[in-house]
Design a protein around this nucleic acid. Structure first.
Lengths: 256, 256
DNA sequence: TTTTCAAAAAGGTCGGACCACTATAGACTT
DNA sequence: AAGTCTATAGTGGTCCGACCTTTTTGAAAA
């Protein structure tokens, strides 16, 4: 009470989240079409004035939007609405995996549920362009059998291409989120992989089923592939034997 | 260059994101077991010292974690690691829906792929406790046929309970994310609903199939239910006739 | 016309001060 | 002594203003 204040401190508008106000404002701009992917937002100093919040609070809200993958800030240039393919940041799932001890098997099972259904849809609806892209990835996989890291990239791209072939962006986004996490993890073990050729062959069969417009076969092949991949990864992790509690999150070490 | 600086300004450690440093630090604490759900983080001022960043930067990182649903800040008390059920904030998907124009049909299709597979798993593995909870929700639905809003809550709870019955937390999280968005939207139209009784009946059939350990039947019933729900919502939106481009995201109004 | 470079613009970071809410220890009442 | 109330310390929330780094851009120079 005795010390003076450098400048002014206003009254707190509502109770809590001024940052939320920013998110809400931007959401409205997007939902009513004023902002579209690729557009640039007003400068922070200007936007702060428009929304009637301070710049720190504005930045707080923008940071939230950034974490959600909605906007992208480029220093010196501006802040832009994300325009790439829909992306549900891999961060969240990764944290959830660490927090709740998601196991590798759970991740693969989730992929199986997602991708089996989606692959069936792709077999029904994929356009020739989609099918061509899927074929390209299969070819690339066969071409990189001796380079596990690159092989893995094309593996992921293959699954992305199939998901795109389903024509359902929601499913494609979900698959991408889960698959990316699995692949990121596998990147560290793939060097010990066996049977890259067999893996490529299984992908080829999925491709053929989609090309032949055979949803049931496509589903079956995708299911087989993911089961195989799950076991392969288990073997890579524990070359010895019995894979058991191998989780993405580590042992529960408690301090208290 | 000519004006004095109030206080100090350090050299920029690395290139860019100091906030990312915070996220990374917390991630490590979680992944190595030092922080577990429900734990309290050190006070911002202390944590900032530990990580060697300023408090604003620390808060920036914490805001990111908050957006990901990893932490929860309680004013006057502290910042805590989220402990509830895994939650992949609905925010992101909602924005993606607005940005990329996800349609209602796409959302329902994603749910169908996710929930049909998951329901099959639930029919195989649900414990008696899980089954009891599913039964409770069905009962509640029949008890609230005259209160659409409450009915809807139990509808959502039913699907959550089924997902929990699958024993797969990853799938449960994904379903929750998508379903919540769909329900949030439907909350605005459900007042015009017809046939709440028929909807309850369909849920009861899913429950029975799970109880009877009949995965195929459970899958079939869930698929039917979601198809029916999709059409029902279309009717609620457009009581007149032909449901067409009704999307979660609005018309593309462009300024330029 | 092309190249160069310095100013402007925009996001990133920082320190400090103050506000609002919570929880708790100590004082007061009973 | 037990219960209640209140002052206070602690913690997150907000704001300001200044400065840094990067990008962009337009004018000057070649």
């Amino acid at each position: 009470m005795e010390k003076g204040q450098t400048s002014g401190a206003k009254k707190p508008k509502e109770g809590g989240a001024v940052g939320a106000k920013v998110v809400e404002h931007v959401r409205r701009l997007i939902e009513d079409g004023s902002l579209r992917p690729g557009d640039r937002l007003p400068a922070e100093r200007d936007l702060a004035l428009q929304i009637q919040v301070s710049r720190p609070s504005l930045r707080s809200g923008l940071r939230t939007l950034q974490a959600m993958g909605v906007i992208e800030a480029r220093q010196g240039s501006g802040t832009y609405i994300a325009d790439g393919p829909p992306k549900l940041g891999d961060g969240p799932l990764r944290f959830l995996a660490a927090l709740h001890g998601f196991t590798r098997d759970e991740m693969f099972e989730a992929r199986r549920v997602l991708e089996v259904g989606t692959t069936g849809l792709a077999a029904e609806r994929a356009t020739p362009e989609h099918i061509a892209r899927i074929a390209d990835e299969v070819t690339s996989m066969f071409a990189t059998l001796d380079d596990p890291q690159t092989f893995l990239v094309h593996d992921l791209q293959f699954h992305r291409a199939v998901a795109a072939g389903s024509g359902n962006a929601v499913l494609a986004t979900l698959i991408d989120t889960v698959a990316e996490l699995v692949f990121e993890y596998r990147r560290t073990t793939v060097e010990r992989a066996r049977d890259l050729r067999e893996s490529a062959e299984l992908h080829r069969r999925i491709y053929k089923a989609i090309r032949d417009r055979n949803p049931d076969e496509a589903r079956r092949q995708m299911s087989d592939h993911l089961n195989m991949a799950r076991m392969a990864q288990a073997a890579e992790e524990d070359p010895a034997a019995g894979p058991k509690e191998t989780a993405l999150a580590p042992r529960p070490r408690r301090k208290k």
